Computed example of a mutant assay.
Amino acid sequence: MLMDLSPSGFGDFARKVFHREFSSHYETIEFARKNAANFLSMANLLMGLSSILCTLNGSWQCAAWLLLIGFMLDLADGAVARQLNTCSALGAKLDDFADFTSFGLATALLLHTNSLLDALLVVVYVLAVLTRLCFYSSGIPFMYRGLPCPYASAILACASLLTGSHTVVLRAIFIIMILFMIDQGVYPHDKILESQLWKKMVFAGGVAMIVCSFYPLACLYHLVWSMSYILFPDVLWSFKV
């Protein structure tokens, strides 16, 4: 069939092409908007899997840095989902799976020794993270029951980097973090990117530290940040818009 080359026919053809291109562009943007938070969760999952591979290959420093990147991604994905109004059951499950991989399995492998005692400690840590993710619900709006595992992971990653992966120090911190995670203590929801300006600046500072590789300043920064959440949860980190 020959195309109608009359002005009206060409105009109709141009409008159809424009409409098709516009629709395709809009669908692409809408797909990206709906899945922006999921992309961040997938990136967190990728950091966790990469950290595991680094640990298995003996690159424990790289493994710890990847966990800190995952920590920042985890803080961002929930905020993005709420801001774009794209919260979903699938997104929540993906976030939990990414958290378990990065802050459970990958973090537990930071204690890389051949000791049977350490192997048991690794198993207990993973079970503590699983328990924290699956069974702990505070029943209180904007509150967590038990220490959120991303903060435990950030502390362990920083301790590993700052101490040269000192086994005795890591054992002690592993045990402390396990106790905090299975404890019934209440912690505020860390909506850092949806709260006061200074909290957003803290997040931006954490990103800048990692991007610019200010070591060991970046480790100290994230360590103090995470410790402040544990020691002063209500005074500093309660959710306020």
Rank of each mutant, 00 (worst) to 15 (best):
G139Q: 03
P141L: 10
F142W: 09
F142I: 00
F142R: 10
M143N: 08
Y144L: 01
Y144W: 10
R145I: 01
G146S: 03
L147A: 03
L147I: 04
L147F: 14
L147S: 03
P148I: 06
P148F: 10
P148G: 09
P148L: 11
P150V: 08
Y151S: 11
A154N: 04
L156F: 05
L156V: 07
A157W: 07
A157Y: 07
C158E: 06
A159I: 13
S160Q: 00
S160K: 00
S160L: 00
S160D: 00
S160A: 14
L161H: 03
L161Y: 03
L162F: 04
L162N: 00
T163V: 09
G164E: 03
S165P: 00
S165G: 09
T167H: 11
T167A: 12
V169T: 14
V169E: 06
R171I: 07
R171W: 11
R171P: 03
A172C: 14
I173R: 03
I173V: 15
F174A: 07
I176W: 11
M177T: 12
M177K: 09
L179F: 13
F180H: 13
M181T: 08
M181W: 02
I182D: 08
D183R: 00
D183M: 06
D183K: 04
Q184T: 13
Q184N: 14
G185Y: 06
G185K: 14
G185T: 10
Y187M: 09
Y187H: 11
P188I: 11
P188Q: 08
D190G: 09
K191E: 09
I192L: 15
L193P: 01
E194T: 12
E194K: 12
S195I: 07
Q196W: 12
Q196G: 08
Q196T: 15
Q196N: 13
Q196P: 10
L197K: 13
L197S: 12
L197A: 12
L197V: 14
K199R: 15
K199N: 04
K199G: 07
M201P: 01
M201R: 10
M201V: 14
V202D: 02
V202L: 15
A204K: 00
A204T: 12
A204G: 11
G205Y: 05
G205V: 06
G206V: 11
